[in-house]
């Protein structure tokens, strides 16, 4: 079966499912409506001028956001947000280990509590970024909707950036709401809060989200099937392992001065962001739910010579933003030359 036949079959299956879901059949019959307006009433002689590039970026942005609201995406996002307080309740009230809850809900400092509530943030932000931004462009090309959009009097740059901004906005919004939920959960139970650290953590996380979205988007620009899994594996596992391996190599060949570079890898930004507020306190292990967090909890990181996570949030955020912009530029270079 050729690729076109597979796509056509997929579209037909979706139409059949939609029809079954709605319980009504749309007959491919022509209605007999005549044109109801005169030539002048229908504005058939109007001439329109193309709006500015900024306006067109905004149109693409809003159109993609509308698509998100009509897809399962928005429900996935809402589920993740609702899961935070639910998981918190389960881990503090329901699940216990040796009589003690998995998460001790009594915080002296709110920041520690927030860090604990957001322990899953590294995994979730990467998951969300890759799923949203890694699938948009391949979906357009696979479903052939790009054949409608790209011939329009709109530069590919507007199309590219408009869609990216919508994905990034959604992930950033989820991240900010997660922080808000964490604050709402933790503040009633604590006596002290360092708000500057919270703000710094949020900004660092946003920079990390920007990089993850841009990286996934860049990989998807050339991909035919989507870059979700590829970017997920690279960000969650590949880049951290590379960083650990490089720090070990630099240490072994007596190039210690280069070891700190590995702590600046952007894959560790969520860990840096969370740990800016403090180390998550979980009874089974303390640390973030990421490869770095788990290895750190089991003492592997401390045994790894040369590796040290960067704690300067400004530097790490700046690196993430710069790398994110470079990823976007690279992705645009690919998409501007992609033949349909």
């Amino acid at each position: 079966m050729s690729r076109e036949d597979r796509i056509a079959a997929k579209v037909e299956r979706r139409a059949a499912k939609a029809e079954a879901r709605l319980g009504e059949k749309i007959e491919d019959a022509y209605d007999e409506s005549e044109r109801t307006m005169s030539h002048d009433e229908a504005c058939r002689d109007s001439v329109y001028s193309t709006p500015s590039m900024l306006t067109q970026i905004g149109i693409c942005y809003m159109t993609q956001m509308k698509r998100f609201t009509k897809q399962r995406t928005i429900w996935t996002v809402l589920t993740l947000l609702i899961a935070i307080p639910v998981l918190y309740y389960v881990f503090t009230e329901v699940l216990t280990v040796n009589g003690a809850p998995l998460i001790d809900p009594h915080w002296n400092v709110a920041n520690i509590g927030m860090a604990t509530v957001l322990a899953l943030a590294p995994v979730i932000t990467i998951f969300l970024s890759t799923n949203l931004c890694g699938a948009m462009l391949p979906q357009e090309f696979n479903e052939r909707t790009a054949y409608l959009s790209l011939p329009l009097p709109m530069s590919r740059f507007s199309f590219y950036i408009g869609k990216f901004l919508s994905g990034f906005t959604l992930v950033m919004g989820v991240t900010a709401m997660a922080y808000g939920i964490a604050i709402a959960i933790v503040l009633p139970n604590s006596n002290l809060a360092y708000t500057s650290n919270m703000f710094s953590s949020l900004m660092t996380m946003v920079a990390g989200v920007f990089f993850f979205c841009a990286f996934s988007y860049m990989l998807s620009a050339k991909s035919k099937r989507g870059a979700t899994m590829k970017s997920l594996l690279i960000l969650l596992i590949g880049l951290p392992i590379l960083a650990f391996a490089l720090s070990y190599v630099f240490y072994t060949v007596n190039m210690d001065v280069l070891c700190p570079i590995t702590g600046y890898f952007p894959c560790f930004i969520p860990d840096v962001a969370v740990m800016t507020m403090g180390t998550p306190q979980l009874s089974m292990m303390s640390g973030t739910a990421s490869l770095y967090g788990m290895l750190n909890a089991f003492g592997v990181i401390s045994a790894l010579p040369g590796f040290e996570l960067c704690t300067d949030t400004v530097v790490v955020s700046a690196i993430a933003m710069i790398l994110g912009i470079l990823c976007l530029m690279r992705g645009y270079h690919v998409i501007s030359r992609r033949d349909m």
Partner: peptide, 13 residues
């Protein structure tokens, strides 16, 4: 205005 190679519209629109 153009229609090239049976373009698809957004399914949920």
């Amino acid at each position: 205005g153009c229609v090239i190679e049976t373009p698809e519209c957004y399914q949920n629109f």
